[in-house]
Design a protein around this nucleic acid. Structure first.
Lengths: 248, 248
DNA sequence: TCCGCAAAATTTGTATACATGACTGCGCCA
DNA sequence: TGGCGCAGTCATGTATACAAATTTTGCGGA
């Protein structure tokens, strides 16, 4: 009955709608979601709303309240940094396993092709980078990377981590004043993509792990920089209220 | 409304009952779970059954079937090995972070106390080790380890991985003929516990990471040994049918 | 005998009514 | 005035009827 991302059932429509509202920031972290209110809003009954919330809990966007019901998971600053650290560790391991186990020609061609397309995005015009296209291709690259070791376990866990709104390196977009610096950091990342694929192809496990980990940690450092100094210079991902210190 | 593990609502009772049946092996991997059948069996309606299955999917014991419904997640041999690898990576990172960030005296005392209790289990009688008590204490040790970095993210992910029935090193118990060898491997593990705590206390991040990773990978090698040579010598965890090669 | 199609059976999806537990605020009593 | 308790409200838990979709089965024809 249930199809894929393209909503077919009511529960699926509710799922994508809720996910959109959360990642767009309309529902800040900590917000409690009431079944009746959402059901009315979406013109459906409580049952599919419940179903959708349950799936979002699986994704990690919602968490179950102690006394029943769901609330939007809120991410403190430390949580975000830790998630990026986790992403680095997992992708590093995926890269190492891929290198150790070897990768089929087809898979290698596939991920190489993605890197080539990323080159295109940069090459067209030095001044104007299509960040939308970059983000999409970058996401594809990391999906392909997760699939390289042929391990359902790692692919599964990486999918979980990647689904978090801020886990992607491209979650943080620059404002006007920082465009060139941002573009430069993307270029560095692209060079890392290239080296990473080469290391996996050469079956250099340790090097592949280090490169992948470093690649993810760059996003972490970027976020730390944004926060520590002049965070007005960069617009962050919507829907993410970064609570710096305060509560643990 | 919902309490904790101790079933209060129907959904909670169904949850613990289903989890028991899965981990006991009464429901082998790949089994599809039908709401109506379970509802009749448990003398409740479909709704709480659905709720329970949804939670089990969050835990990773069930997976959603493509056309709706749930099935018991089946773990091929490779999946099990990968999960142990994943556990090693995550615990290694947790240990490293704990060492890098430093750990409060209280937490350090707590985990040291667990190690001491583990010593007791071994010390009482060289011939007779209480595997039940060992398993419980060992679980406590790894819970405490996951909590050391003070990171909700890593604690959460480690809890996920640990909940899988075979992810624990103590999931594989020996039969009569291999008791002494098994006991010896536990002693090695205990020594690793001790070294790990020392490394974290000394804030040696790299060493702590390596030790924790090695500790988990020992379980992996143990499983590989069981499978590669004479697996009749050791009884594995119930409810886990290890499909060696065959389908990928 | 095998293939395809259609109908029936099975199973999940959805709506809804009702039950029960949690929370809030008001009032009473000390 | 402050605290305790009770009742009403609100949100979730549960049961159940019905709808939609998927799967299976059986029949007919090539």
């Amino acid at each position: 009955m249930a199809r894929e991302a393209t909503s077919k059932t009511h529960a699926m429509r509710a799922l994508v709608e809720l996910r959109k509202r959360i990642t767009k920031g309309e529902l800040p972290g900590g917000t409690r979601l009431f079944e009746v209110a959402l059901a009315e809003d979406l013109q459906i009954s409580r049952t599919p709303v419940r179903e959708a919330m349950s799936r979002l809990a699986e994704e990690g966007l919602l968490e179950r309240a102690p006394s029943g019901g769901f609330m939007v998971r809120s991410f403190a600053y430390a949580d975000v940094l830790d998630t990026l650290e986790l992403r680095g560790v997992l992708e590093g391991t995926a890269a190492r396993l891929a290198a150790e186990r070897g990768v089929s020609e087809a898979k290698l061609r596939e991920i190489t092709e993605i890197v080539r397309k990323l080159d295109e995005v940069f090459g067209d015009d030095p001044g104007e980078v299509d960040f939308e296209a970059y983000s999409e291709l970058n996401s594809q690259f990391h999906d392909a990377l997760a699939a390289l070791p042929g391990s359902a376990t790692f692919e599964r866990e990486l999918a979980r981590v990647k689904s978090l709104p801020f886990a992607s390196p491209s979650a943080f977009l620059p404002n006007e004043g920082r465009l060139s610096a941002f573009r430069r950091s993307l270029a560095v990342g692209q060079e890392q993509h290239r080296e990473l694929v080469a290391a996996i192809a050469a079956r250099e496990g340790a090097r592949a792990e280090a490169l992948a980990r470093e690649h993810a940690l760059a996003a972490r450092r970027n976020l730390e920089y944004i926060f520590s100094s002049e965070h007005s210079m960069v617009t962050t991902v919507p829907g993410l209220e970064l609570v710096a210190p305060a509560e643990k």
